[in-house]
């Protein structure tokens, strides 16, 4: 740990800084001027960043290990990291667990894609035209404060307890937020760019096609990335009720038998899936929009 801390210092400020540090050590009375190590908003090297991130995980793991291996908490409530790793390997070795993962990914993707298909065009209209905003946004603002979870009983009446019920919950959870966020993204498109296209002879439709739609895309992809995180949250909620498959169900079942290690695994798997999808979006954004 101490070593890692030293690493950060050296990596961030290079040889000159460590030399200054040595000088500072040798003649304390002189107190030569030294750059501060942690400065507001200033960049640090990639390496220093990575090391710090690793240290942060290590701290988390350390606290967890002390609490569990040190028997400070009942293992029923907090399994040891070793036990979780073992359960993780065991569960991923079974076909049943992969089935849970598969069905959960399917539900999230379906709900999310449906929400995007409907919400993005509406958001573009609301963001582009004031009249669209007036028509669409006030009701959306109202509905989005209704918790999606509270729709579950209604959804069960409408869609039963089949696949559509889960997909619909994810859809409702994402849709209203998405419309508003896409509208906000659209409004951030530079008005001057649109005006420039008009002075170059663009019609209203051409300005939408050739300026607003290309300009909004990077922000749009970022919004979708955020929204996908929400979709996973709603998935778990959807799978806590009346289901017999999916990661949320696996977590619920584990809870019934106090298998906390399995709950941990379920949560970690969802976290990893979220991380993977997030990285895919980040990668796409970099790849598709090099002009940003």
């Amino acid at each position: 740990m101490a070593n890692a801390g030293e690493e950060i210092g050296t990596a961030a400020f290079g040889g000159a800084a460590s030399e200054a540090a040595r000088t500072a050590g040798s003649s304390q009375a002189a107190r030569p001027a030294r750059r501060q190590r942690i400065r507001i908003f200033e960049d640090i090297s990639r390496r220093a960043f990575a090391v710090t991130a690793v240290v942060s995980f290590a701290v988390l793991l350390l606290v967890w290990s002390i609490l569990s291996y040190g028997k400070m908490v009942n293992p029923v409530f907090l399994p040891t990291p070793g036990a979780v790793v073992k359960t993780f390997a065991d569960l991923l070795g079974t076909q049943a667990y992969w089935h849970h993962i598969g069905i959960s990914v399917f539900r999230v993707t379906s709900g999310f894609v449906l929400a995007c298909l409907v919400a993005i065009p509406l958001g573009l209209v609301a963001g582009t035209f004031r009249i669209g905003e007036a028509f669409l946004e006030p009701p959306m603002e109202f509905i989005r404060y209704m918790p999606a979870v509270a729709f579950i009983p209604l959804i069960m009446v409408w869609a039963g307890i089949g696949e559509w019920a889960k997909i619909l919950l994810i859809f409702i959870g994402c849709f209203f937020q998405l419309v508003l966020m896409v509208a906000a993204d659209t409004r951030q498109v530079s008005k001057e760019l649109v005006q420039a296209s008009f002075t170059l002879g663009a019609t209203r439709w051409q300005a939408i096609q050739t300026v607003i739609i290309p300009a909004v895309q990077p922000r749009l992809l970022n919004t979708m990335r955020l929204m996908l995180g929400w979709a996973w949250t709603y998935l778990v909620v959807a799978e806590l009720v009346a289901v017999n498959s999916g990661l949320g169900y696996a977590i619920m079942k584990a809870q019934r038998f106090l298998n906390t290690d399995q709950i941990f695994v379920g949560i970690i798997v969802i976290g990893l899936l979220g991380l993977i999808s997030d990285r895919i979006f980040a990668f796409l954004n970099k790849r598709m929009y090099p002009w940003v």
């Binding site: 530079s190 760019l193 005006q195 300026v211 300009a215 002009w291 940003v292």
Partner: peptide, 10 residues
């Protein structure tokens, strides 16, 4: 325009 207003994706 003063602010360039080039289409950054082109």
């Amino acid at each position: 325009f003063q602010g360039y207003t080039l289409f950054p994706w082109l």
